[in-house]
Amino acid sequence: MLRGTSLTCYRQDSILFENLDLALDAGEILLVEGRNGAGKSTLLRILSGLLRPTSGEVSYQQEPIDNVLDTFNQDLLYIGHKPGVEPHLSAEENIRYWEKLHQQETLSDLVPVIQSVGLYGYEDIPAAQLSAGQQRRVALARLWLTKEKRIWILDEPFTAIDVKGVALLQQRIQSHLAQGGCLVMTSHQPFNDILKIDHRIVLG
């Protein structure tokens, strides 16, 4: 589904990675590991199309993503380490706004989504006043909105999330994979057996 061919990236005269090949099919997880500054986030940004690699190519369903940008963006859900949550909008407004810009169909009722990410009762508070974990949850609520997005690219999804939240998120990831989606993520958390990691890339 998602494939990277001989990806190379230079940053400030140093090589982050060179001739990296990866391929991801439906229902698979790719875990990108490495020390801080090894280029994990950069690789994720390249795979999401935000950043062009120095050389190499990212393709989606056998087509370079630049040729199929519309379908690719429709199927892509990227949550970077900057979560894209507007601090002056409430959780609900944030979710609603994101949905309108990214989804073909919008939900009439957001309450179930807000409940499943544990923000019920906080949905009217400006995001700036929420805790770091809650802000993260506002961003992660996108995962519950959608069945349209097949590729998830998540940068450190478990950061600042409590134990219960992590379990919930793993459950959601599992059902996403079962529906034929795929997932690229970075994480420093050790994994228990719940999620089966199909591919690993260690950078640095």
Binding site: G49, N73, L76, K82, L101
Partner: peptide, 16 residues
């Protein structure tokens, strides 16, 4: 602001 909180990034990746 929207550059730093990441919402521009999200807009850039929208199919809109």
């Amino acid at each position: 602001q929207s550059f730093h909180d990441g919402s521009l990034e999200q807009q850039a990746l929208s199919s809109v």
